[in-house]
Simulated assay, not measured.
Amino acid sequence: MDPINIGDMRALARRRLPRMLYDYLDGGTHDELTLGTNLEDFDRLRFVPPVLQDVSRIDLATTIFGERLSMPLILGPVGSLGVLSRLGDIATARAAEACGITSCLSTTAVSSVEDVCAARKEPIWFQLYVMNEPGHHEHLIQRAKAVNCKALVLTVDSAISAQRDRDMRHGYTHTGQVKLSNIADMITRLDWIRDVLLGPRLNFGSMPGGKNNYKRIMSKAGGGLIAKDLTWDTFRDIRAKWDGPLVLKGVMTPRDAVKAVECGADGIVVSNHGGRQLDGAISSIMALAPIVDAVNERAVVMLDSGIRRGQHVVKALAMGAKACLIGRGYAYGLAARGQAGVEQSIEIFRKEMTMTMGMLGCRSIGELRRELLHTGDWQF
């Protein structure tokens, strides 16, 4: 099947991956209410298209932190990409560069930040978790500096380990043990076995414990690897240690957004972690407009969570975001077809965005505006 949208990529990923890994990628927390709301609220926003506009040429290019991107799309941080496809973090970074955009490497990546940066010409972004191990995040900041990462993205919505029911049933990420039922399923996924299981030994390249730490880290995941005592003082301390653009990811209220700017944030990612943390939270797109208005262009406001279509990106931009980060939207492609699948996913977004902007009479990202959206009964 030749995929024509991200839903098709998702179906291909489900066929190729062991069910345990597919559910890790696809699932959310508890009843997955926020996972569903992220998608539903994008659908609630409807376009109000003008006519008789010259759209003979449409340019998606934009500039974020001085870096020109071919479109306002960033491959966001997703942990454990290396279990979806061999050297998945490197494949993702290479795909982003080939398509003229950038990517952000997760602290919980299988490949190290050094290996990923060595695999491409342009610098990447690095996503930072502050771990329970003292001094580890300072060490990671220095490593990110040493390989000239463009931006540091501090994720702050994960101090408490969420219960993802699908993972709990499989025993994935909370016991470190693989159930017999999972093994029976795995042995039927021959392409995945050849690609991943028979590939290089898995290791979290940026996590504590050094080489061969994969099983040890997985066994601790349910108990919480991330520090629970983060405060605004922690953020200020990181700001003092990082010279480049600093982004705060996981912001959902105008008050926190304003506080982040006052503490030195250059960017904000409006995010509920793709429905993988607090279940029952509002959608990211619902939270976006009040944050854009509160920040008032004092920082770059971006959005992630629930983005499966180019139309979703266009809606977020019209609402005031400067760019969107995607996670599942490219990870499905990686799981289905490796680097080629990531590139295909990016081009699907590009095609859908171009088509949507043309129908809205917009020739450039800067022409997108809130009046092109009908927000119904939304209260901002």
Rank of each mutant, 00 (worst) to 15 (best):
G209P: 04
G210H: 09
A109L: 06
S106A: 15
G176M: 12
E97H: 03
D165K: 07
R201H: 08
F126E: 04
D115H: 03
Q163I: 13
Q142R: 15
T175S: 15
T102E: 03
A162N: 10
G224C: 09
V196I: 13
S206E: 11
A95G: 07
A151Q: 08
G135N: 06
A96L: 02
N203R: 14
D89R: 04
R189M: 04
T173D: 10
R120C: 04
R169N: 11
N132H: 10
L84P: 06
S181F: 11
T155H: 08
N148S: 13
V147M: 02
C149D: 13
D165F: 07
S219Y: 01
P208E: 06
H137C: 13
P123W: 12
E133Y: 00
Y172K: 02
A95V: 09
I141D: 02
L154V: 15
G171L: 11
G205K: 07
I124E: 07
Q127K: 04
L198M: 14
D185S: 12
A159M: 15
R94Y: 02
K220L: 15
R189Q: 14
L87Y: 09
I226Y: 05
L198H: 13
T108I: 07
T102K: 10
L105P: 02
A162F: 06
I160S: 10
I124A: 08
T173I: 13
H137F: 08
E138Y: 06
I226Q: 03
N213A: 01
T102L: 11
V130A: 07
S161T: 15
S161Y: 01
T173Y: 08
G176E: 12
V113H: 00
S219C: 09
N132V: 11
R216Q: 14
E97N: 04
E122L: 10
E138R: 13
S161W: 00
C149Q: 05
R164D: 12
P123K: 07
K215C: 03
V156D: 01
R94Q: 15
R169D: 11
A119M: 00
A98T: 01
C117E: 13
M218Q: 13
S181M: 10
A95H: 04
W125G: 02
S103L: 03
N182A: 15
I187P: 02
D191P: 05
V116G: 01
C104H: 04
M131K: 00
A184V: 12
M218N: 14
S106R: 03
L105W: 07
V116M: 03
L140A: 02
H170Q: 06
M168D: 08
M186N: 09
F204Q: 01
A221Y: 04
D195R: 09
L202M: 12
L198W: 11
K145L: 10
R189D: 08
N212S: 11
T92G: 00
E138L: 14
Y214H: 11
L154R: 03
G100M: 10
T173E: 10
I101A: 07
V113L: 11
K211L: 10
